[in-house]
Every structure is written in structure tokens, then in C-alpha cells.
Amino acid sequence: MIGLWDTTGNEVVKALAAERRSAGGVASGMALTLIVVVDEKRVREAEAAATIAAAAHPCRLLVVVRADVERERNRLDAEIVVGGRLGPCEAVVTRMYGRLALHAESVVMPLLVPDVPVVTWWHGEPAAEIATDFLGVVADRRITDTAQAADPIEALRQRARDYAPGDTDLAWTRITPWRTLVAGAFDTTDARVTEARVVAPPTDPTAALMCGWLGSRLGITPRWEPSDASPRMREVQLSCANGEVLSLTREDSLATFRRTGQDDRQLPLVRRPLGDELAEELRRLDADQVYAEALGAVAGISGLDERPAQRVHVWKDPATAKRAEAGVTAHAGTSATP
């Protein structure tokens, strides 16, 4: 590992090139560039997940930690790891302080691997508008996690309002095993589904997306039955026109599949590590139309996949907004003075 403290972007580029030459074959064959936007307290967690994903998708990992944007003096610290503790990838962990944190692209852009896709992952509460972050605008794929928002269901609706082809969310990734098992139940029947019921906590974004997926695929309005008995989605039940009822109920890491007239079956349904969820999203680098339709069904917005894929950067300076807010407060205080 190479540590550079109070350095410059140019020095980081030079140090990475030198470390790549030293590593030799370990640093070849990059499939993509993965940009991770994360807070300092969750860096190790993000690194652990990216290490698992990099084992399946060799990449250049660029971790961006922004801090103290109001600091008067700009500072850039960086760690460079090639083929070390973060697995078979090239990794640059950058910590940006002061106004530099608002222009992270000035450091990140020269570090992108040429001619390969760029994926940006926000490991934390998703931004309200991705276009205000240039690291999202430059990416071919953008991964958020609405489960980390204060209000996950409203965050999903915001993701729909702000959607552009190439966006996805880890709440969607987490229902892949559910969707696989539910879809597999129809390999032996073509019965039409007339009703659907989802049992889950009232703030579970995976349940919302499951309802959206069932609604967009089957042309029905699923019923969400709130339940606090489990912290995660517990059951999906489908009623068919021929009288059959199919249900999938999770208990810990197993699911019980029930079907009218058949014996119950036990199926694996485990909660995967964050790194496995990330690796799944890195398998596809095109727009996910099925996710767009499910998300649109959640928010009641159609045609999400028909929007332009290219985002246009919208500059947003939090310091300006804060000064404006302070000015309004001061004006109100002056007006209230007798």
C-alpha cells in the first residue's frame, strides 16, 4: 500500500501508475471502474463488499470520501492498493476536504480506466437528485440503496421521479431470489394470476418493489399486508383463476413453497452478503427495463425506460444554499424586531 497525505491528483495518478508497474499481471484485465461514494465511518464496510464483487469482476476501485466541505483549506489524502488486501483489483481510496470535496471529479476523472464502463455506487443514503453529483453523471450504471434512507418508500418514489436508464437499487437486487422462485412456480402451469398478497413491514422497500414487479408483470394490483412480525418481507401469495393458490413464506434462511394439491417444499432463501448483491448488479451494464417498470408501478409513473439515458450535470453548492437560508433567517429576525 502507498499512502499519500496532503497530496495532489497528479501525484495520485503517478503513484498508481508506478504501483501498477510493480504489480505486473495482477493489475491487468480491468473490466470496469467502480466508484464508491461513502462516508468515513462506512469505508471498511464498502471496501469489504467491493472486494467480494471484484473477485467476480476485476475492476479499478475508486473510493471517494467527502468531508468538511466548509473547511477553508483544501486537502487530498489517498491510499493506493494494487493486488493487496482488497483482492484482485486496483484500489484508490481518496479523502477530500474543503471545497475540493465538491469537485471530486477533478481527482477521479484522470483515474478512470480507459474504454471500460463506469459504475457509481452510493453506499449510504441516496442523493435526492443524481444529476447534482458529477460522479453519477459520468457513470454508465448508478447503484443506490433506498433501504438506507430515513423513509425508504418515499426514497423509492424519488428514485422514480429522478430515474434515468442505467439506474438501479440494491433493494431491487435483494428480491432476485424471491423473483426467481416465484417465476419458477409457473414453469408447470399457465394459469392466470388474479390476486397477489405481500406480507412485509410497512417501510420495506423490497416489498414495495415486489408489489411493483408483480403489478407490472401480471397486470394486477397486489395487496400489501403490513406486518411487524419480521424485519423483512415474509410472504408472497398468488391466487390463480383456476382456483390454485401459491405461496412462498420465509423463515430465517429457508422458504416454504405451498401449492394447492401438492406437498409443501423447503427451498433456500438466504440473505446474501452486501458484496454478493453488488456483484450481481455488476453483471449487467445495460439499463434494467424490468426494474424500471417495477419502480414506475411503485410510484405510479409510466415510461421510465423511455427517458434519455444521458444525464446533464446540475451544479449544486450546499454552501450557497446554507448562506441563503441563513440570510432568510436573519431577515426574519430583523423584521420581527419592534
Rank of each mutant, 00 (worst) to 15 (best):
M1T: 03
M1Y: 02
W5F: 15
T8H: 07
V12S: 02
K14H: 05
L16I: 04
E19F: 10
R21L: 09
S22V: 07
V26W: 00
V26P: 00
A27S: 11
S28E: 15
M30C: 15
L32E: 03
L34E: 00
I35L: 14
V36Q: 00
V36D: 01
V37D: 11
V38E: 13
T51D: 14
A53M: 01
A55W: 02
P58M: 05
L61S: 03
E72S: 12
E72R: 10
N74K: 06
L76I: 09
D77T: 09
E79Y: 07
I80M: 06
G84M: 14
L86G: 04
P88L: 08
C89V: 09
V93F: 14
G98H: 09
R99V: 08
A101S: 09
V107I: 08
V108G: 05
M109R: 08
L111D: 01
D115E: 10
V116M: 04
V118K: 01
T120V: 14
P126A: 06
E129W: 11
I130C: 09
D133F: 04
D133Y: 05
L135M: 13
D140V: 11
R141N: 15
I143L: 05
T146M: 03
A147G: 15
A150G: 15
A150H: 15
A150T: 15
E154T: 09
L156G: 04
D162F: 14
A164V: 08
A164N: 10
I175S: 03
I175K: 04
R179L: 06
V182N: 00
G184P: 01
F186K: 04
D187K: 06
D190K: 13
D190V: 12
A191E: 15
T194L: 08
E195H: 12
T203P: 02
D204R: 02
D204I: 08
P205A: 13
L209R: 01
L209C: 01
C211Q: 08
W213D: 01
L218D: 05
L218I: 12
G219V: 05
G219I: 03
P222K: 11
R223H: 13
D228G: 14
D228K: 12
A229E: 10
S230R: 10
P231N: 07
R232N: 09
R232C: 12
M233F: 07
R234S: 12
Q237L: 15
S239L: 14
V245R: 07
S247Y: 05
T249Y: 15
D252C: 12
S253G: 12
R258A: 13
L267R: 08
P268A: 06
P268E: 06
P273S: 06
G275A: 13
E281G: 02
L285G: 10
A287D: 14
A287F: 03
A292C: 04
A294D: 04
A294T: 06
L295M: 04
G300V: 05
I301G: 12
S302I: 14
G303V: 04
Q310H: 10
Q310R: 15
V312E: 09
K316A: 14
D317C: 09
T320G: 05
R323C: 06
E325I: 00
E325Y: 05
A326L: 09
A326W: 10
V328A: 12
A330V: 12
A330N: 11
H331W: 13
S335T: 02
S335P: 00
P338R: 07
